[in-house]
Design a protein around this nucleic acid. Structure first.
Lengths: 233, 233
DNA sequence: TAGATTGTTAATCGATTAACAATC
DNA sequence: TAGATTGTTAATCGATTAACAATC
């Protein structure tokens, strides 16, 4: 669903499995197909939770139950990058988690600026999900002077004027918009001017951004609509 | 990403375009492919916003810009169900909105119960996105006695004891979980016992549910992870 | 009309999955 | 060992898109 050209399944193409050392080489400059990346993200989510529940091992059938992905496909997705499992046993949760993180290039590398400290913003700031997946919310901004200086999660809320400097100082790549839809376009512009190149938009406003900046709009309602279509009747 | 068997593209298969009257017949018992439904949902989101911005017409190229879907594919997706556009002009926003709603079977039919009136719950209750897409949040529940009786959006917060009766009385099919991850499994069980058959889980907890109940987990962090993979480098 | 944009075809490419050998 | 589960093949099926005729 992006405008990126699809590449073939990188490490997967007609190849035999790679061992750990070969993974990064195999990935080279190539990109995963959208489907593979989406599914790997979901496996990672389940693994993170399984770990929390004290699980050491997990097999493709269990992963299938929680992700709604066919078990054969799970094994196929994984085997494209290496032999991560043990036949007759399954996958080691820790090891597979590390491997998928490596594949997705997301081992704690990305810093986030969150704009908006209302209900949604505070829900995001207070959540562990981002930290669980290697993101760090480095700064939170709000236009309301009454909110500036108070806490959101473990971060002190800053005024919009400090956006540019903070984005630079903290090496922030990603801006998350959690303001009312009406305010979203203006906030988008501010984030772009501050130097953010990826915007995660939690409103359903349409944002106009210059070339080189990518907007990803995440709408709970659209998710629901889509999901319902399959679940109902 | 569900365990549903894929059917061929229903109305799309080798057929000529259908006019409005034929759509429902064409859809019959068949299901859309996952990709089509996902994309239709996104078109609907953009149309809803375009309408708010006062737009009457929209063409496939504009839809493509906002959805990151190839314009040819948009036209192809739509033409499978009818001739909704005017050559040389584009699509009528209102008409296309109605048609997609009809295709997705979601013309204001679904009632929602929201559990959890913390930051995330209030963000959901106060948002217009659900209403925009034909969902109605009929009731909000919270375990905290101090919250019971206060307002969330336009609804009065009820205690968990009233869950079963309300779900029955209001014909609620969908339960949305917006509580801390730790509390999510217990809330899931309560929703199931109250008669909800579709659960939308906004935490990253893994929910065990009986056969016949479907869980859809929506994680902003997983979304972000997935999106980043394509946007970075 | 001239220009624009849809609707549709045809060819390609990738995703999906049943089945089973390999092996822990 | 016997049982279980992975890794992999091979075949099928659906998604994608360039190109262009149709037509508003």
């Amino acid at each position: 669903m992006t405008s990126n050209k699809r590449k073939s399944e990188s490490a997967g193409t007609g190849s035999r499995a790679k061992d750990g050392a070969e993974i990064s080489a195999a990935l080279g400059g190539e990109r995963l197909s959208l489907g593979v990346a989406a599914r790997l993200s979901r496996y990672l989510q389940v693994l993170t939770q399984a770990k929390k529940m004290g699980r050491d091992k997990i097999n493709s059938q269990e992963l299938a139950r929680y992700t709604h992905v066919n078990p054969t496909q799970i094994r196929r997705d994984l085997s494209g990058f290496g032999k991560f499992g043990k036949r007759g046993v399954g996958y080691d949760v820790d090891h597979l988690t590390e491997q998928i993180r490596a594949i997705l290039h997301t081992a704690g590398k990305y810093n986030i600026a969150l704009f908006g400290a209302g209900h949604l913003g505070k829900a995001i700031a207070g959540s562990e999900v981002f930290a669980d997946h290697g993101f760090e919310i480095k700064a939170v901004f709000d236009s309301d002077p009454k909110k500036v200086g108070t806490q959101a999660g473990s971060v002190t809320i800053q005024p919009p004027e400090e956006l540019r400097k903070t984005v630079l100082d903290e090496e922030i790549l990603v801006g998350v918009i959690a303001v009312p839809a009406k305010a979203a376009p203006a906030v988008g512009t501010m984030l772009v001017e501050a130097g953010v190149t990826i915007i995660f938009n939690y409103t359903d406003a349409l944002l106009e951004v210059p070339q080189g900046v990518t907007v990803h709009t995440s709408s709970p309602a659209v998710d629901l609509l889509y999901a319902l279509y399959f679940y109902l009747q």
